[in-house]
Design a protein around this nucleic acid. Structure first.
Length: 828
RNA sequence: GCCGGAGUGGCGGAGUUGGCAGACGCAGGGGACUUAAAAUCCCCUUGGGUUAUCCCAGCGCGGGUUCGAAUCCCGCCUCCGGUACCA
């Protein structure tokens, strides 16, 4: 052991040894633990957020391995996606080339931090051997009816002649070229995730080890709302009817008008010669405004009468049908029934346009509402009035009764609506998975798409001339590659065209966790047998920004994989950890803009990987945001130096065999301190409280540092304590821990030595401190033997000099005795 | 607005089941070692009452339950994240 701690001189050595000894491989037997972190998009540089993300997983992986679990801890690359393609448009470098380079950089940085990954299981989503299975899933899901083609509204930039994402639209203009953005209807591919909405919602109750904020966000996102569908016939139209969805069927008799979305599919049947022009203009104005909508402000309610009247299903009354900007076409049925007396939005609209108001719900049967004096809608539940045979029912009973009656009349019935939409996944991009579809005019005149046969997978991304194909404008990039787009029809063998669109990269990350189990398997995406043993993932660590999209798609795909017989679980992850952000030293998000970016590379070269690791874990609990602090990092480096000096100062004690037992005095104190620390550290790591685990080791080091062992027993105790300290430190500061362990005679790496059990005889209390309160205020403290009884302790407490003085002349009315903690004497 | 989370010293944070608030670290102060500095080691460090002792106050604010509340309940305030004419 060197006298001074130079992390740079020991860290690479241990990293090489771990790799050489294949310590991070799955053994295939024993109790498993699958620890997974969200795989990164390999950008040019790793930042501190990555470091923290992988560290949380790494500490757990190292801990569980030492505990003897069969740990799977893999890493891979979410390599397909927009950034590489956008960069290519800028500088002309091929995304594949850039990705290879970035992966190499990323991997080298990861290794320098000492993560314990099994690199033989590395996967890269841009590898055709990976994305072929995306295509395979697509084909299977198409057979299951989970894939379909639909029309969807997209943002179309007139100047770029291409589809752009919502985020690229700024105030109705294209972010890149400032040209006008239009809404266009375009065909796209979609997954029918809504078939699983109810299951995705129900299963949230099982995910007890997920953070509330994530399950709550998913619940909201799925947005289940039970109610009724009600069909209104249209006056003068026999072959079509307007269907509305409502959660308040009990207010049906209060309907005084209907409102439809400006782009409602039945609009042409509603308008007449007088209203057609006005409606057209209104719809066009709304489409134009859609992109401009600002957050946080509710636009003024505007509407236009369509000219049509709907017929009330019970009363037969004719109510006007309006078009208005507050009804959205893709929720519910795109049409609503308006009850201005009992809905605030409807009330405001009715007031603005002079529509009639009819009250049908009251607080009590007697408390009738004067609609002419109404200042706001009465939105609460109550009792139904003016509702024919339903009058007198409570709102709750009325909703059920009306829904049932509608069903009998064949004019609707109970219905459930979800906020969640299907997942449109086709992208007009190059750097993604090609959709395995061919269009043939002869075999598929409707252009629904012919599935590429399974044995022709993968449909590979063609190599391209970057500057010609990746321009960011015009038709999708792959449409400009003739050798890709022109193919033969799998049915007739004649000329055909391939689908030019690629898949959303969220597809790649829906099932990668299962691919790690058998990353090289040629015959299937997942080895079902291995999956049965290894799933679910025990702990999944990642950023909370993935709370809905990724984690919902991920759960959906697992359900599909179960339906395909690939996995046995319905939910992919048992425990989810969403880690907080690492901010800059100024408390702001690390960014070039603020000049507050701290590079992991710099920290490793300055303080060593272990100090960086210790800081990141010590700064706060995993789910909290932390601020980078140079002073705190130095503090951690100082701590590791103290550890080193302690180990170095006592290294001669290592030769004393662990002939331990029957100690007394200082030797016993040393052993007690070490075993108590071990007990607490173990407990802290189990509950993911890494910051306090490190604090426990610091306490131990503070206790041991001043002690200079003199007897054999003390030397042996000290050597044991330092070995245990190395174990406790090993998940967080593995390199330093290994070096100390080796210097103290270990020939095996720490993870093979196992995680020792603490000795209960040493952690038990030798004396118990009782706080003594009088009327709840702390007034003294006594120390007693653990076996002492309640009465005896109470007597001692009252006899204590300070206490007895305070009790002088007062009567004790009550004595509270909390074993091992405190005594509270209540006096009059 | 609604849903979720948080609010504790100068700072980051401990406090696991209602039981001694402030572990551990940073910053700051004092001392030891040194020719000196750095490094290291030791001590102090919530505020107030002129402080070895002792007393009072104190965990965003105001109430409540309890022998006892950072912790439970009610009503507010502030911040963070999500979401929004959702019928």
């Amino acid at each position: 052991m060197q006298e001074t701690y130079v992390p740079q001189s020991i860290e690479p050595k241990w990293q090489e040894r771990w790799e050489k000894e294949n310590l991070f491989k799955l053994k295939g037997q024993g109790e498993k633990r699958y620890i997974l972190e969200m795989f990164p998009y390999p950008s040019g540089k790793m930042h501190m957020g990555h470091v923290r993300n992988y560290l949380i997983g790494d500490v757990l992986a190292r801990y569980y391995r030492a505990r003897g679990f069969d740990v799977l801890h893999p890493m891979g690359w979410d390599a397909l996606g927009l950034p590489a393609e956008n960069a290519a448009i800028q500088d002309g470098r091929h995304p594949a080339e850039r990705t290879r380079e970035n992966v190499a950089h990323f991997k080298a940085e990861m290794k320098s931090i000492g993560y314990s990954y099994d690199w033989d299981r590395e996967i890269t989503t841009s590898d055709p051997e990976y994305y072929r299975w995306n295509q395979w899933f697509f084909l299977k899901m198409r057979q299951m009816g989970l894939v379909y083609r639909r029309m969807n509204r997209v943002n179309w930039c007139v100047s770029c002649a291409t589809v752009i994402a919502n985020e690229q639209v700024k105030d109705g203009l294209c972010e890149r070229c400032n040209a006008v953005v239009e809404l266009r209807q375009m065909p796209e591919w979609a997954f029918r995730i809504t078939r699983y909405s109810q299951k995705l919602l129900d299963n949230l109750d099982q995910l007890t080890e997920w953070p509330d904020r994530v399950t709550s966000m998913q619940r909201h996102w799925i947005g289940r709302s039970p109610g009724a569908e009600i069909v209104f016939k249209i006056d003068g139209v026999d072959d079509a009817a307007l269907s509305v969805f409502t959660t308040r069927a009990d207010t049906l008799f209060g309907v005084t008008y209907l409102v439809v979305a400006p782009d409602h599919p039945l609009m042409q049947r509603l308008v007449n010669d007088e209203t057609r022009q006005a409606i057209l203009e209104f719809a066009a104005a709304q489409a134009k405004n859609a992109g401009k909508q600002k957050r946080d402000e509710e636009p003024e309610k505007e509407g236009v009468f369509t000219g049509a009247y709907a017929i009330h299903p019970f009363t037969g009354a004719k109510v006007p049908v309006w078009a208005a900007n507050f009804v959205v076409s893709d929720y519910g049925t795109g049409a609503v029934m308006s009850v201005p007396a009992h809905d605030q939005r409807d009330f405001e609209f009715a007031k603005k346009y002079g529509l009639s108001i009819r009250a049908v719900i009251q607080k009590t049967p007697e408390a009738s509402i004067d609609v002419t004096a109404l200042e706001e809608a009465f939105v609460n539940d109550g009792v139904m009035v003016n509702s024919e045979g339903f009058t007198g029912l409570s709102s709750e009973k009325g909703r059920a009764a009306i829904a049932a009656a509608l069903k009998d009349k064949n004019l609707g019935g109970p219905a459930v609506t979800f906020r969640q939409r299907d997942w449109g996944f086709s992208r007009q991009r190059y750097w993604g998975t090609p959709i395995p579809i061919v269009y043939c005019d002869r075999c598929d005149p409707a252009h629904e798409g012919i599935s590429v046969p399974e044995d022709q997978l993968p449909v590979r991304l063609p190599d391209i001339d970057v500057s010609k194909v990746l321009t960011g404008r015009g038709e999708p990039p792959l449409a400009k590659v003739p050798e890709f787009i022109n193919t033969i029809c799998p049915i007739c063998g004649g000329p055909a065209r391939r689908e030019a669109e690629t898949m959303d990269t969220f597809v790649d990350s829906t099932w990668y966790f299962a691919r790690y189990l058998s990353p090289h398997l040629k015959t299937a995406p997942v080895d079902a047998e291995v999956a049965a043993r290894m799933l679910p993932v025990d702990i999944y660590v990642g950023g909370p920004e993935h709370a809905v999209m990724h984690l919902l798609y991920f759960r959906f795909w697992t359900m599909v994989m179960k339906a395909l017989g690939l996995v046995t679980v319905e939910e992919p992850v048992k425990r989810l950890v969403t880690q907080g952000i690492v901010n800059g030293p100024d408390g702001r998000k690390m960014s070039k803009r603020w000049g507050n970016v701290v590079s992991p590379r710099d920290i490793v070269s300055k303080h060593g990987a272990d100090a960086a690791r210790t800081f990141v874990m010590f700064a706060g609990p995993p789910e909290k945001d932390i601020d980078w602090s140079d002073e705190q990092v130095e503090g951690c480096a100082r701590f590791l130096n103290r550890v080193w000096r302690l180990a170095y100062a006592n290294v001669k004690s290592a030769r004393f065999a662990d002939a331990l037992g029957n100690e007394s005095g200082r030797a016993l104190d040393i052993r007690r301190a070490a075993h108590r620390a071990l007990q607490k550290v173990t407990d802290d790591i189990e509950r993911l409280s890494f910051n306090t685990a490190i604090a426990r080791v610091m306490e131990l080091v503070n206790t041991l540092t001043p002690i200079k062992p003199e007897t054999d027993a003390e030397e042996a105790a000290m050597a044991e304590a330092i070995r245990l300290m190395a174990v406790m430190l090993s998940p967080v500061a593995p390199h330093l821990a290994e070096e100390i362990s080796a210097s103290y005679g270990a020939t095996e790496c720490l993870q093979l030595q196992g995680w020792p059990a603490f000795d209960a005889a040493l952690t038990s209390q030798t004396e118990v401190a009782y706080a003594i309160q009088i009327n709840g205020k702390l007034r003294g403290e006594i120390h007693v033997a653990p076996e002492m009884g309640k009465d005896e302790i109470l007597a001692l407490a009252k006899a204590d000099a300070k206490i007895s003085a305070q009790l002088e002349g007062k009567a004790i009315r009550k004595e509270i005795f909390v074993p091992n903690r405190l005594i509270n004497l209540v006096v009059g």
